[in-house]
Design a protein around this nucleic acid. Structure first.
Length: 589
DNA sequence: TGGGTGCATGGGG
DNA sequence: TCCCCATGCACCC
């Protein structure tokens, strides 16, 4: 057995009181480090991390960092990290040569924070990788160093660092004056996009020093230009960009941690929202501006995304996206809407099972092989984390995916059947987020309430009272449940058969029909083009029309000089008042 | 007996 | 005709 060397190239020590495990190695196992280096790695891994990305001209800040800086191979930048530790000064210097877009830096830092990166310690340490191990409490701060380096003073850095030290990222960021805002030039946007894209396309970087840097440039060239939509809705990737990042790997040690995220992030793509089309993949909120346009967005790519029905496409406005982003001050810009579903009665019922569209489940949730499934953590938009059981049932040679245990969450969000639950993902990181949207019109509600609209009405009645009953408002048991319990089987089947959505009409229309025949009569009027024939019936003169009456503006009843009642309706075309056709009157009686 | 669980059924796309 | 999925329902505890 040969002598051991510390695998930190800067050390290479051969003697130590204790050998420690360092970063994971491509070849498996961990780097062997001397006690000192190993301890540094431990400290780094177990404490909050503060990363400051600064422009090269601020490289003087490097003198502050007391840890090996991280060279992200294949990326045209260096990031210096240091450990935020109670006994240590928290600051980092570094240089990121290509930083422009706030959103991309956010994405980068977010990824650093929430995922595991394999970072290479600079120098000739081909096997020297370093895992950040998804440090969750990282508070990344992006600090601009203006091209004019004077604006980015050491003093300023210290100010910011002080804020950081209190773990108050917001205040640290707020201290950044607008003129200090980074990322103002467009010059390097592509490179930054690429950077963030690479960061987000894999939670785990495998570095490869042997790869020529030209490859990076190729990726730049194929990147889309940043835009609001891009930054907010588009995952940082594009199929045409040649992603996944060629160096991306799924490290075995981390696979269990987020395997499904890996798979997605290496391929995800979210095309720009389609233009609102009259064919109804979109709906626009009344009286709102463009930012409120609710657009059905083809979701981020996932397994089987192509099979995703448009009805499950997330319909989310830019404004909502921004609101979502607002929930994550430093996570903004990469909330990726995945899919949504209008809650059915059974989804929102007491059983607590939310049926997931199969394609969505298979596209965006971890693959499961066992029927009992796996627990899955999903945050709501308030950041509260819920654990559901994601599982499936065999069903006709297929599967039926459900989320179990959703009742508390459903109740917490105060949603009910007809409301929409949305599933999004924070990228990078892959954290699933569940949100909700209240039904904006009765159609959605009614659709989900179909079971309540069963033959509860006796023949001859014209009431559509079932429409207004919300089955979820009383705990999910629908009114027809009790009815059906007392029905013979055949009647039950009949009742079920009536649950035909195509027979339904929007509630507004139904409401229109919740009137008496007398009231309906007032709405009858002759067709505008109809010419009456005057007929005498039992000495009474009636205008008779060939064409049936139509529903329209209310009619009025008047009395003739003879004392007889007649019904008049105003003609649309000529505005003249006309008598209603006799058969309308007769049938009304 | 009531609630939970898992599968079956059947309408509808 | 196939597949999805909302919901029914039998079984179990």
């Amino acid at each position: 057995m040969g002598s051991k060397n510390c695998m930190n190239e800067a050390c290479r020590g051969t003697t130590t009181s204790e050998w420690k495990k360092g970063w994971s190695l491509k070849s498996g196992g961990f780097a062997t480090l001397c006690y000192s280096c190993g301890t540094s790695v431990e400290v780094f891994s177990s404490h909050s991390l503060v990363a400051l990305l600064v422009m090269p001209s601020a490289s003087s800040a490097c003198s502050w960092f007391d840890m090996p800086y991280m060279w992200i191979s294949d990326l045209p930048m260096k990031i210096h990290f240091s450990v935020k530790h109670s006994t240590q000064r928290t600051l980092v210097g570094g240089n990121a040569e290509y930083v422009e877009s706030e959103s991309t830096v956010d994405a980068l830092l977010r990824d650093i924070c929430m995922n595991t990166w394999i970072l290479e310690i600079p120098g000739d340490t081909p096997n020297g990788t370093f895992a950040t191990n998804g440090i969750r409490d990282v508070r990344p701060v992006v600090v601009e160093n203006q091209i004019d380096g004077d604006k980015f003073s050491t003093e300023r850095l210290l100010q910011l660092t002080k804020a950081i030290g209190s773990n108050d990222v917001s205040s640290a960021l707020e201290q950044l004056k607008p003129e200090e805002s980074m990322f103002k030039t467009r010059q390097s946007s592509k490179r930054l996009l690429n950077l963030a894209q690479q960061c987000s396309s894999s939670a785990l970087f495998k570095t490869d020093n042997s790869r020529p840097k030209e490859g990076v440039k190729d990726i730049y060239e194929s990147l889309p230009q940043p835009s609001l939509n891009f930054s907010l809705t588009a995952p940082l990737g594009s199929p045409s960009s040649g992603l996944p990042f060629p160096g991306a790997i799924v490290e075995g040690s981390e696979q269990s941690k987020g395997s499904f995220q890996q798979g997605q992030r290496t391929r995800h793509v979210l095309p720009k929202p389609p233009k609102p089309s009259p064919t109804a993949l979109s709906e626009t909120n009344k009286g709102t501006g463009g930012s409120q346009t609710r657009v059905a967005r083809p979701p981020a790519e996932g397994r089987g995304r192509n099979q995703l029905l448009p009805r499950y496409w997330p319909k989310i406005t830019d404004q909502e996206l921004q609101q979502l982003s607002g929930e994550y001050p430093y996570l903004k810009s990469t909330i990726v809407p995945l899919f949504e579903k209008i809650l059915s009665a059974s989804d929102a019922g007491r059983i607590g099972r939310l049926v997931l569209p199969k394609a969505c489940a298979e596209a965006y949730f971890p693959p499961i092989n066992q029927s009992e499934g796996i627990p899955i953590r999903i945050q709501d938009i308030k950041g509260k984390e819920w654990t559901f059981q994601f599982r499936f049932w065999p069903n006709n040679n297929s599967r039926m995916y459900v989320l179990e245990g959703v009742t508390p969450c459903i109740q917490n969000m105060q949603v009910q059947a007809g409301d929409t639950v949305t599933f999004s993902r924070i990228d990078p990181g892959g954290q699933l987020v569940i949100g909700c949207r209240k039904a904006t019109n009765n159609t959605d509600v009614q659709e989900a309430q179909t079971p309540s609209i069963v033959n509860g009405d006796s023949p001859g009645e014209t009431s559509f009272s079932g429409v207004t009953d919300n089955p979820l408002s009383n705990g999910g048991r629908t009114s027809d449940d009790s009815l059906q319990r007392h029905m013979p089987i055949s009647e039950k089947k009949k009742a079920r058969n009536i649950k035909n959505k195509r027979l339904l009409m929007p509630s507004d229309d139904a409401m229109e029909l919740r009137i008496t025949w007398e009231e309906a009569q007032e709405l009858l009027r002759p067709s505008p083009t109809a010419e009456p024939n005057v007929v005498m019936v039992e000495d009474h003169e009636f205008e008779e029309f060939e064409e049936p009456p139509i529903f329209g503006k209310r009619t009025i009843f008047t009395s003739r000089p003879s004392g007889e009642q007649e019904q008049l309706a105003q003609c649309d075309s000529c505005s003249k008042w006309r008598r209603l056709p006799v058969h309308a009157l007769l049938s009304a009686k």
